[in-house]
């Protein structure tokens, strides 16, 4: 930390320099007077620094914060661990670039885990940009680090189909009613790993990375509930979405990764087992992004406490007057 502060003195100077007017305001008007009339842009600036400085620190030093996997993340990990090499798994990437910050690390970790377990991966998307998210993850993990895997034998990208939950309902019984080709335009019967696959009930596990509608809720309602003995589902969700999925845990969704915290925990489990002594930093995105989370949360908690104290002080003052 000391070395960081010495070498990156300009960052410290920028942070302090930008806050000088606020400090002067505190000195002139006092603590309560300043806070009662605080311009909200100061809060934006504080939030900027509380996120930017940890990102910069982690980016320069390469250090990450310690993470202890929760029971739900471990359940996701165990669900994939129990599968045998060659088992088919369906990976539905139902998100777009706006959720990449939270869900990208989960998607990367899921694919890395599936590759390490030698599972056959069937990618699909219920969101239009999901197909690009699949391509990005395949480029990042499979093409970059596992070039021996063959497209059509070990993994296939079925791409996006519109119809939201209607797609799930159809492919539950007849995959080919909607998917006639993969994203490259190759007919399904010409893809070796598609032979014998008639519907998604044949998948040993469905992995959903979802950011909203259609997403995990629809997979539960239209796939898990009608076929509870055949479809097993684990999911990774954004923070906003995760609270809606918790009621389905553990009967309908045995494992759930919630937001970047869930991603970091699952990443740790995968990297501890398969990452080796010096894991590639690209598999640590979630762990790295927990640094800004810590400081931003401290700031939010501090602001909530200060705002409540001010509220009660103000109320008492109004009562006295």
């Amino acid at each position: 930390m000391r070395d960081f502060l010495i070498h990156q003195w300009w960052l410290l100077a920028a942070v302090i320099g930008s806050l000088v007017p606020l400090i002067l305001q505190f000195a002139r008007r006092g603590f309560t007077g300043t806070l009662l009339e605080l311009d909200r842009r100061w809060i934006f600036l504080l939030m900027l620094w509380s996120v930017l400085v940890p990102i910069y620190y982690v980016g320069v030093t390469g250090r990450t914060f310690p993470e202890v996997p929760s029971a739900l993340s471990r359940a996701v990990f165990d669900e994939i661990e129990r599968l045998k090499p060659g088992d088919p798994v369906l990976l539905s990437f139902d998100y777009d670039p706006t959720a990449e910050g939270e869900l990208g690390p989960m998607a990367t970790a899921f694919v890395r885990h599936a590759v390490e377990k030698k599972l056959r991966m069937y990618f699909m998307a219920l969101w239009p940009v999901g197909a690009q998210m699949i391509d990005n993850t395949i480029d990042k993990v499979i093409r970059a680090d596992f070039p021996d895997l063959v497209y059509g034998r070990d993994y296939v990208n079925l791409g996006y189909k519109s119809g939201n939950e209607g797609v799930i309902k159809v492919i539950l019984t007849n995959l080919r009613a909607l998917y006639t080709t993969d994203t490259k335009g190759t007919a399904l019967q010409d893809i070796p790993m598609m032979r014998g696959i008639e519907n998604i009930q044949q998948m040993k596990l469905v992995i959903n990375v979802g950011a909203g509608y259609p997403g995990t809720k629809e997979w539960v309602q239209y796939a898990v509930i009608p076929y509870p003995d055949k479809i097993r589902l684990v999911a990774g969700n954004t923070g906003v979405q995760a609270t809606q999925i918790y009621p389905y845990v553990p009967l309908q969704v045995p494992g759930l990764l919630g937001a970047i915290k869930g991603a970091a925990e699952y990443e740790k489990l995968v990297i501890d087992k398969y990452g080796g002594p010096n894991p590639d930093p690209k598999y640590l995105d979630g762990l790295r992004r927990m640094g800004p989370q810590l400081f931003a949360h401290l700031l939010v908690i501090g602001l909530i406490v200060v705002a409540n104290v001010l509220y009660f002080l103000n109320r008492r003052r109004e009562r006295h007057t």
Partner: peptide, 19 residues
């Protein structure tokens, strides 16, 4: 959870700018 999600969004944009 929403706060966590929004901070993650901000973090990835700042990471993009810095990196």
């Amino acid at each position: 959870y929403t706060v966590m999600g929004r901070i993650a969004l901000l973090a990835i944009r700042l990471e993009f700018l810095l990196d």
